[in-house]
Amino acid sequence: MANISVSVTPHNINIEEVSSTAAAKEHGAVNIFFGFVRNRNLGRDVVAVEYECHSEVCVRTIEQIAAEASHKWAPDANILIIHRYGRLLVGEASVAILATTGHRDESYKITRYIIEEIKLRAPIWKKEFYLDGETEWVKGHALCQHKRVNHNENSGNSSGGR
């Protein structure tokens, strides 16, 4: 059974702490994805971003995404996901996704699936702050109504926001 931990946090993501998460003895692969704030987007110089999220629905949605990934590729995976909210400067980590699995292929697939689905389905919004002093909410992906979040369908253990 998968072990899934999802949190959203206003605090810095501790890259060393995430990276040092130990794999289970039967897991030969640890794959970690970090997303960082870039200094440029669509031709504009970015100095900071602000993430806003609907915490409850966000955590449940990401738990559901992780459960789907585990179900598809590795039912015994350990999955850790942390997403920042609040104001982040260029170079700060906005998201961390860690998957430990028996073999490398499924750990790559799980982390890739989770980040792509977060971008489409997690209720998170990003405001960019530009060098010229302007700000803009970044246009995103419309949420689907039929993709209901059912907490009871999650497999494994999950934790709420921290």
Binding site: Y51, V95, R121, A122, P123, W125, V138, G140, L143
Partner: peptide, 10 residues
């Protein structure tokens, strides 16, 4: 209730 516009996480 919450009104959720198009999203942009990650």
């Amino acid at each position: 209730l919450a009104l959720l516009p198009p999203v942009c996480g990650g």
